[in-house]
Simulated assay, not measured.
Amino acid sequence: MTTIIPFGPQHPVLPEPVSLKLEIDNDIVVGALPSIGYVHRGLEKFIDTKDYNQTTYICERICGICSALHGITYTRAVEKLFNVEAPERAQYIRVIVGELNRLHSHLLWLGLFADGFGFESLFYECWKYREGVLDAAERITGNRVIHSISKVGGTSKDLSKEHIDMLLKLCDTLEPQIKNIENVFVNNYTVKKRLVGLAPLSKQLAYEAGTAGPTLRGSGNAIDSRDTPDWNIYKDLGFKPAIEKDGDCYARTKVRITELYDSIKIIRNAISKMPAGEIAIPIKGFPTGEAIIRTEQPRGEVVYYVKGNGTKNLERLKIRTPTFANIPSLLLMLPGVKLADVPLIVLTIDPCISCTER
């Protein structure tokens, strides 16, 4: 005989209001059904009241963790409507800020994951290193969370020599710090005992379920929006997707750690190759037509669809976030696992309900 129990939306391990109805037999999960809508804000409809420039700030407020990449993706989509490209220097600045966003998001996640194991000191260590990233972002953009550096036509702020020196120093400092915590997440006996072989997702199933981000690449799929024509600049920065083949919780953890090193490498390469010049071009008129842009957020691919009708307001804004894509694969992972393992499995997709429900 099975029992239905609620998991979330409030749970000591969960940073987000994830709500699942779990069907269990003794302590084994045999089925799961998600329940969403707790933090729905109607932001896609709210853009009716704002012009296309003001909408940038709405998009950045979809999520506090990946706000910069939401703003960057939206502004690139509107630029596609205008059939213009931001100056090359602005594109490099967007890459640098986007990778800072990825660094702080992954370090935040590693801290929360450590907390899920009960490793409180490791939690504080991860978040201490994250503070350095947030300090750098604040010095560049003026804010720790909502950066507002990307605008239609380019960026609102440039990188000075002091900013560049600070970023290079951050990279030099952060690399050994990541090595310090990597040893625990990769080699610790307790971590490996809990994660290796837990909730495996095959390469084919992960692809067919529409999975995104580290969850997808942890199953051996070398799919990353940074490796597509949607953002050609990454090809010049020596980027290659980080993948693991086992598809379990341990593999998804290793992908995120590898991506921390990749982000540091990308920032260094972007600084060395960033050209001089303008950071923005003037945009005249109002957007018309349709455009779709994809960007790789920390949790996976985000898709922005925009439709302009020749007025200052967009006719339609539609966003597909990575957590929305990863929830179906989460439901495939849960049957057959112990109830005690559910919190860790949920954390490995790094859910963001704020993004999902908007």
Rank of each mutant, 00 (worst) to 15 (best):
I4N: 04
P9N: 05
Q10P: 01
P15G: 06
P17D: 15
S19N: 14
L20G: 14
L22M: 03
N26Y: 12
N26F: 14
I28E: 13
V29N: 06
G31Y: 06
P34Q: 05
V39K: 00
R41F: 04
R41K: 10
G42I: 04
E44D: 10
Q54M: 13
Q54K: 10
I58Q: 02
C59E: 09
R61N: 03
I65N: 07
S67V: 01
I72A: 11
T75F: 06
V78E: 00
V78K: 08
N83V: 11
R89I: 02
R89D: 11
A90E: 03
V95N: 01
G98D: 03
L103A: 06
L103K: 06
S105E: 09
L108H: 00
W109S: 01
W109P: 03
D115Q: 13
L122I: 13
F123Y: 15
F123P: 10
W127V: 10
K128L: 09
R130C: 00
E131K: 04
G132L: 09
T141H: 00
G142C: 08
S150D: 12
V152K: 04
V152T: 05
G153N: 07
G154W: 13
T155Y: 05
K161T: 09
E162N: 12
H163M: 05
H163F: 03
M166D: 15
L168H: 11
C171I: 15
P176N: 08
P176R: 05
I178K: 07
V184K: 15
F185A: 07
N188G: 12
K192D: 04
K193M: 10
R194C: 11
L198M: 01
Q204H: 09
Y207P: 01
Y207R: 14
A212T: 10
P229S: 06
I233H: 04
G238A: 11
F239G: 01
F239M: 09
K240S: 09
I243W: 07
I243P: 13
Y250L: 04
T253V: 11
T253L: 15
R256K: 08
R256G: 08
I257K: 04
I266C: 00
I267R: 05
N269E: 13
I271T: 00
A276R: 15
E278M: 09
P282Y: 08
I283M: 08
I292P: 08
V303I: 15
V303L: 13
V306F: 07
G308M: 01
K312N: 12
K312T: 09
R316G: 02
I319E: 03
T321E: 09
P322H: 10
I327D: 04
L334A: 02
L339F: 13
A340R: 11
P343C: 08
C355P: 07
